[in-house]
């Protein structure tokens, strides 16, 4: 059983340790516990858990994180390929990614 782990070696997440201030905000916003703090700097502790939501990069005050953010939704990819607008993407069926239980 592989449980709920998605594909390996696909994420576009990049961390520049030179820029990192060690504030830890990225750890707070990541919903998959991808990042950790080690000796005052953020490190990518669980790269394959990254779902490329973009929360860490947007909330990094130092611009140390970079990711091609997007929503992992096959229906949205199909809609895009067929030239249908992203506005009505599936995906956002409100429920899966909500407080109670996207897209």
């Amino acid at each position: 059983m592989t449980g709920m782990r998605y594909l390996k070696n696909v994420t576009t997440l990049k961390l520049d340790p030179e820029r990192c201030l060690g504030c830890g905000l990225c750890l707070e916003v990541c919903p998959q516990a991808v990042l950790a703090l080690a000796v005052g700097k953020a490190v990518i502790a669980d790269r394959d858990a990254c779902m490329e939501c973009g929360a860490c990069a947007l909330n990094c005050p130092a611009g140390a994180l970079e990711v091609q953010a997007g929503v992992g939704c096959a229906q949205a990819v199909i809609n895009g390929a067929l030239g249908r607008g992203g506005g009505s993407a599936c995906c956002c069926s409100p429920d899966s990614r909500s407080v109670g239980g996207c897209c």
Binding site: M4, R5, Y6, L7, V10, T11, T12, P31, Q32, A49, C50, M51, E52, Q68, A69, G70, V71, G72, C73, A74, Q75, A76, V77, A89, C90, C91, C92, S93, D95, S96, R97, C102, C103
Partner: peptide, 20 residues
């Protein structure tokens, strides 16, 4: 089941494109 990626909580766009 592939279309359930959008409703799930842990899939990435890069991964979805790769499997598709």
């Amino acid at each position: 089941v592939m279309n359930f990626t959008g409703a799930s909580t842990y899939t990435s766009l890069s991964g979805v494109k790769k499997e598709m």
